[in-house]
Design a protein around this nucleic acid. Sequence first.
DNA 1: GTGCTTGCAAACAGTTTGCATGCGG
DNA 2: CCGCATGCAAACTGTTTGCAAGCAC
Lengths: 163, 163
Amino acid sequence: MTTARSPRDSLPKRAHLHQVFESYLNQLGLRQTRQRRIILDAVLASGRHVDAETIANEVKKTDSSIGLATVYRTLKMMTDSQILVERHFGGDRASFEFADQGDEHHDHLICKQCGEIVEFYDADLEKRQEEVAKNLGYKLIHHKMELFAECLGLDKCERKNSK
Amino acid sequence: MTTARSPRDSLPKRAHLHQVFESYLNQLGLRQTRQRRIILDAVLASGRHVDAETIANEVKKTDSSIGLATVYRTLKMMTDSQILVERHFGGDRASFEFADQGDEHHDHLICKQCGEIVEFYDADLEKRQEEVAKNLGYKLIHHKMELFAECLGLDKCERKNSK
DNA sequence: GTGCTTGCAAACAGTTTGCATGCGG
DNA sequence: CCGCATGCAAACTGTTTGCAAGCAC
């Protein structure tokens, strides 16, 4: 029923994102540049949830001359090109994650203790949300749902707690 | 099953919030001031979801000398005193709403067309969320859920569309 | 009076933008 | 070489904070 999705599950799918971005650029007459390639690589190599500054730091390891503004501009382009989605969890920093591909939408469970983010999909919840919207006289377009929780078995948590 | 809550439903309950805030101030040795009273009045008179700037504008109608910083400081105190809860819907501005009283928790449905915000409570969703968390090995503490939708009958919407 | 409060301006964090220069196609 | 891209610094938004003066108790 409830399906957890580990950060690794979608790794194979990321392979063609280079192509997706490339053709996006071409279609708009935009250019492939060294910095855009480096930034995309950094994004692909990173975990599922990253913020601009993390990427900027990562990118600077390869080329320290790349500016924060370029990272922001490029992340926005990737969002426009449907590679990434922008999320606002905590409040301040925006975080980016890979866009869902077709049907593979998911929601998030965030551990209050260690900050671990688990992605999941639950058909019952999805269905009930549509019903609820209809009951209220609306047609559901999409939703945002985050469950805040704490570990039952502490094993998952403790690893991260120390960091 | 699904219960909608209109903005008016909780009006009677707001009456004693003055007292709540007052005793909060007393307990901490803080002072009741003209500006705090004015700000609380503005909050009480406002709709369920307000941002700092809206309150600041409202407050300035009564006393134009009241600064934005005071509004922020006071809204934070009201949040600390459990009168208000801070929410982050869109991304930029924070919005404040009256805190749930005991069991009367609710979620939000936001109309993509007119921006109307409907509050609702659905026991099935709540229950399923707990199950999902448990399935993933966590204990649910609380959640954040927003349904984005469009009106089925346009009557609700059109009124607001014009504004 | 004591010290919490206030308004103002300055500081802040995250993000965006203007501009002269650089570089891809 | 045309014109998009870049880096830098400055602008901007929402919010917070330092400070001297003001007011509640």
